[in-house]
């Protein structure tokens, strides 16, 4: 990968971290409502993954979606505005934290019913197969979603019909507060693909370059063979499941141990060691990201609330 792109990936990861740290503060201040799930700790997963896609490849994910939205190229301004429920958010303040999408960036949401977006991802691929193009649908979900029926129906039809879907399981070890071992018959999630005769693999999700390489390989396979692929990316969320998580299910020592593998720290070290960038240059990127988020918050706070008549807008497309 070119030097500039690597530095760009570093920038994206820091931007996600800063955006979410600021988001958490705004949530505590009551400016952001509803459920909010932070991606902190998992930044390398979507950053490496989405860097490997072609622009024509579609991305769909679950509710932990702020990072994915940034990686897809949605401006921080719009993400922050959506978090604050403003009319300048990409979903015009009607979706909130869990429903970020921008079809012009091929980011198709932000879906909050666990596993519910998997058959929809198959549907994107059915549509693309019908249209005769070679677009890939990249469908991200947590390991908790692999225990629900949707997962099995979606994987089965994808393999049976030869759909171009890259299934990406972000295994962050917990479905809310329940460990993988307590919820899933097998803890090596990618092996579930074996039941469908589907190619699969597992990669360390704390190392962005490893994720990128694994994703590239998987995407190549999907495109060339017109077959789905299940890629398991192991990771860990440093924060609670959502903002209202007392974290009774795990010990602080465990979190601390994982924090030693901070994906941003790991990548920073790699960039400096390989002399891709100097510490000073990376510090400047850190500062720049900080400033971008300050501006995004300003933009969001200054943005107008949705108009009252928007309440009845977009119920039916036919009457618009």
């Amino acid at each position: 990968m070119k030097k500039e792109q690597q530095i760009d990936l570093y920038h994206q990861m820091v931007l996600i971290r800063r955006l979410e740290e600021r988001g958490a503060e705004l949530y505590q201040q009551g400016k952001i409502g509803g459920f909010m799930h932070l991606y902190i700790g998992q930044e390398a997963v979507s950053t490496g993954l989405i860097a490997a896609r072609e622009p024509r490849d579609r991305v769909i994910t679950a509710y932990r979606d702020h990072g994915v939205a940034l990686n897809c190229g949605i401006p921080a301004n719009e993400i922050m505005a959506e978090l604050l429920g403003k009319s300048t958010g990409m979903s015009k303040g009607k979706g909130g934290s869990m429903h970020m999408a921008d079809t012009s960036k091929n980011m198709w949401g932000g879906h909050a019913i666990v596993g519910g977006h998997l058959p929809i991802a198959s549907g994107f691929a059915i549509g693309d197969q019908y249209a005769g193009n070679d677009n890939i649908t990249i469908c991200m979900f947590g390991e908790g979603a692999t225990n629900i029926g949707y997962f099995h129906e979606a994987l089965n039809i994808a393999k049976t019909w030869g759909l171009r879907v890259l299934w990406v399981c972000e295994n962050n070890q917990y479905g809310m507060g329940t460990t993988v071992e307590r919820a899933s018959a097998i803890s090596e999630i990618h092996l579930k693909a074996e039941a469908y005769g589907m190619k699969n693999s597992r990669v360390d999700g704390m190392d962005v370059m490893k994720v990128y390489d694994a994703a590239k390989e998987a995407l190549d396979y999907v495109r060339k063979n017109s077959q789905p692929y299940l890629l398991e990316i192991t990771t860990y969320r440093f924060r609670g499941h959502s903002m209202g998580d007392p974290e009774r299910y795990r010990k602080q020592e465990e979190v601390k141990k994982w924090e030693e593998s901070d994906p941003i720290g790991i990548f920073r070290k790699q960039l400096i060691e390989k002399k891709t960038a100097t510490a000073k240059a990376l510090d400047e990127i850190d500062t720049q990201a900080e400033e971008e988020i300050v501006k995004a918050v300003e933009f969001a706070e200054a943005s107008p609330e949705p108009a009252m008549e928007d309440l009845f807008k977009n119920i039916y497309a036919d009457t618009e």
């Binding site: 998997l118 198959s122 549907g123 994107f124 059915i126 249209a131 129906e153 089965n156």
Partner: peptide, 22 residues
């Protein structure tokens, strides 16, 4: 398209295909 007996795959799949323009 003959589908498997899998209502989520059918309706979820149709929703997805509709979203991308079919």
């Amino acid at each position: 398209k003959d589908t498997p007996i899998a209502e989520n795959a059918i309706i979820g799949g149709a929703i997805g295909a509709a979203m991308v323009g079919q």
